[in-house]
Design a binder for these strands. Structure first.
Length: 668
RNA sequence: GGGCGCGUAGCUCAAUUGGAUAGAGCACCGGAUUUCUAAUCCGGCGGUUGCAGGUUCGAUUCCUGCCGCGCCUACCA
């Protein structure tokens, strides 16, 4: 509702200025929010118009105020020095629309979106860094879907890379286990934990004797031959670990539609198809000398091209060399293709530009009967259509931004500018550990490390906090709180509530920081259920629900009926009028902003805004709740109004939390 | 060396993308409950936005130069 009003206001102001000052080129009408609600609900800075209109800001503001005429949903405008036009919303009108849950039509762009997230190497347990990725990705999917977009979720599985090879080496060379023995282990409950430790041992084993690295090379090579025993072991391990990852993420309500695997990208020769096109278009060049002799290379993204400069000056010198340091090796001199090359092929497929497709088979069924598909060389006949989408978002950490840019540049070089423009690297920073947290986990820290604000986790060293461990701790911690607060409930019920709280705390924690901020993980903060946390917001909803429970009313139907009971917008006006109602109005205003905030999140690829919104709404509600006794309100009409307020806020808060993947327990 | 990013209260982070008095949480101190009310609420304490210039009506935000920190910069993925 807020978003709708903002758009209309901007439109009207622009139209007005066009008519009032014909011929002038007008800048974009920016609409902001005044520092506090007393000033108004929208603020339009008029400064940018002063120059083009050759008129003082205050005069322009006054002209708009006096002459624009009525705008639906807008009550009044005020000119504020040094050059703001403050706009007040028609409170009663908005409240009535909101109570009836009227959703103004919005333009929804057509075309399917593909979001890739999680993409954990299937060789060890997921850790907190992976959790941040999955929660960001899953929340972004929910944001897009809230905005009405159609979204496919993919989780890329690098099952033939060095990391999987290393764990295979661990089993075959260090533990000297047979395929049957590995298979038995892979059936154990937390096989990914076993691999976590083994992976760290393998890294250590390599360090002890560089000769041991030979095993890695042999294994890596053997995995590429799908018919080998080594490949079968790798497949066994990676599939079992992948299943564990899906289970872990399912605990947080994170699901996927499709799992494309590197093994199929190899076996279905995606690269060959891409390679031909890349050579033909001149994106790749063959090096005949220097350190990259015998390799097919690409210009590193972000480096300036000499050929471009030559084109500018009109000099027709052909195929100018890329300086060695600007070269990115795509195909090695032994003719194997590197990771970026495979990624280029994969992304051509995403946009439907490769001319090849995966086979598909069902892999994992979620408790809600939703199927997750996996790539296969020979798949099932009937399967959904994946790939060939209009837009993509890759949730991949900031360290890979150069590789991502290289893939985008490759698409551009192939002439697919449209695709390149709709390719978004959803970049985020890592989760590190505070020195205190690292010490708690029993790691010895150097003096230098102790002075750092954070220390990077390392799967290679087995240094980090596992996702399932963290969840277990959160649940246990929430459980003891629920146990003491609600001893009358049976244990299963208390556990279910504790689980909801734990997930709320975890998902909120991962979302409250903006993407580019490194999270310095600390158990104390992550395990907190007070202040700016998920449980704080959940608790606000529980409070709202309990009011309705006591009143023997259903909050979900009350909005509509309650709005009707109040019978007219005039009634809303009575209770929202004037400065004394500012506080309650602020609550309504915040509740009206959900779609507006979702818009900002998708436009800026920043889910943190929705977390802030949930917190703000909860905070305003808690203040309201504290100041206004509702059920004991003697004035029956006012009581209805207060109940409507609670119902609307409750509904919007539930929606907001749902977008973050957070559900609300019945009691807390 | 080059590329990307960061530097804001004691700590962890925001700041509507250039706007009005830089805000939250934690921590600390002091208060609030006969109620739908404590996983809560109210108050207090806390700032030269790393430093120095520049751009303009206006800078935490943009530009330049320093200082400090992180990541990337493999024929690894």
């Amino acid at each position: 509702m807020y978003r709708y009003l903002e758009e209309r206001l901007a439109q009207h102001v622009l139209e007005f200025l066009r008519q009032r000052y014909p011929g002038a080129t007008l800048p974009h009408v920016a609409i902001e929010q005044p520092p506090n609600v007393e000033l108004g609900d929208f603020a339009i800075p008029v400064f940018p118009f002063a120059k083009p209109l050759r008129t003082a800001p205050l005069k322009i503001a006054e002209a708009i105020r006096a002459e624009i005429g009525p705008v639906e949903g807008i009550a009044e405008m005020q000119v504020a020095p040094p050059g703001y036009l403050n706009v007040r919303i028609d409170r009663a009108w908005v409240a009535a629309e909101l109570a009836r849950d009227k959703k103004p039509a919005a333009d929804i762009p057509v075309g399917k979106i593909l979001v890739e997230h999680t993409s954990i190497n299937p060789n060890k347990a997921a850790h907190i860094g992976h959790l941040r990725n999955a929660v960001l990705g899953d929340t972004f999917v929910r944001l897009l879907r809230y905005a009405g977009r159609e979204v496919d979720i993919q989780n890329y599985i690098d099952n033939t890379g060095v990391q999987v090879a290393d764990v295979v080496v661990g089993f075959t060379h260090i533990e000297k286990k047979s395929r049957a023995e590995i298979k038995a282990l892979a059936g154990q409950p937390r096989f990914d934990y076993y691999c976590w430790d083994l992976y760290a041992r393998v890294s250590h084993w390599y360090e002890q004797d560089k000769q041991n690295l030979q095993a890695r090379h042999e294994t890596l090579h053997a995995i590429e031959d799908a018919s080998s025993e080594t490949a079968a072991i790798a497949e066994l391990i990676s599939t079992a670990v992948l299943r564990r990852h899906l289970e872990t993420m399912d605990r947080l309500d994170i699901e996927y539609d499709f799992l494309p695997r590197e093994s199929e990208i190899l076996q279905l020769h995606f690269w060959d198809a891409a390679f031909t096109k890349l050579k033909d278009s001149g994106v790749l060049s063959f090096e005949t000398e220097g350190k990259n002799k015998g390799c097919w290379v690409m210009r590193r993204a972000g480096t300036t091209s000499i050929t471009e400069i030559i084109e500018d000056t009109g000099n027709a010198e052909e195929s100018e060399k890329i300086s060695e340091e600007d070269q990115k090796v795509i195909v090695r001199s032994n003719s194997t293709v590197g990771y970026v090359g495979k990624d280029i092929a994969y992304h051509m497929w995403k946009f439907g530009l490769l001319g090849r497709d995966f086979g598909y088979r069902k892999f994992y069924r979620y408790p809600n009967q939703h199927d997750c598909w996996i790539s296969a060389t020979e798949g099932e006949k009937n399967h959904p259509h994946f790939g060939g989408v209009a837009e993509i978002y890759n949730v991949i950490d900031a360290r890979q931004s150069e590789a991502q840019s290289t893939v985008i540049e490759a698409l551009r070089g192939l002439g697919h500018n449209e695709a390149a423009d709709h390719y978004t690297h959803f970049s985020y920073e890592m989760v590190a550990l505070t020195p205190r947290c690292a010490a708690e986990l029993g790691y010895k820290l150097s003096e230098e490390d102790k002075t750092r604000s954070y220390i990077e986790v390392s799967g290679r060293k087995g240094f980090g906090v596992k996702a399932d461990d963290l969840l277990d701790q959160l649940i246990a911690s929430a459980k003891s709180e629920v146990d003491s607060r609600h001893p009358q409930l049976d244990d299963a019920e208390r556990l279910a509530i504790a689980t909801q709280i734990a997930i709320g705390a975890l998902r909120y924690f991962m979302l409250k920081f903006t993407k580019q901020s490194v999270i310095a993980f600390d158990f104390k903060e992550a395990l907190s259920f007070e202040g700016e946390t998920g449980p704080y917001a959940q608790y606000a909803v529980v409070r709202a629900t309990s009011i309705f429970k006591k009143a023997a009313l259903d909050p979900d139907t009350f909005c509509r009926d309650g709005a009707n009971n109040l019978s007219s917008t005039a009634e809303f006006a009575q209770y929202l009028k004037g400065g004394s109602a500012n506080e309650i109005w602020e609550l309504w205003l915040s509740a009206a902003k959900t779609a507006y905030i979702v818009d900002q999140c998708t436009a800026a690829t920043e889910p943190a805004y929705i977390a802030k919104h949930a917190f703000q709404l909860a905070q305003l509600f808690n203040t309201f709740y504290h100041r206004h006794p509702i059920l004991s309100e003697p004035d029956e009409r006012r009581k209805q109004f207060l109940l409507a307020t609670v119902a609307v806020v409750r509904r919007e808060l539930i929606r907001t939390l749902e977008v973050m993947g957070i559900t609300v327990p019945p009691v807390m």
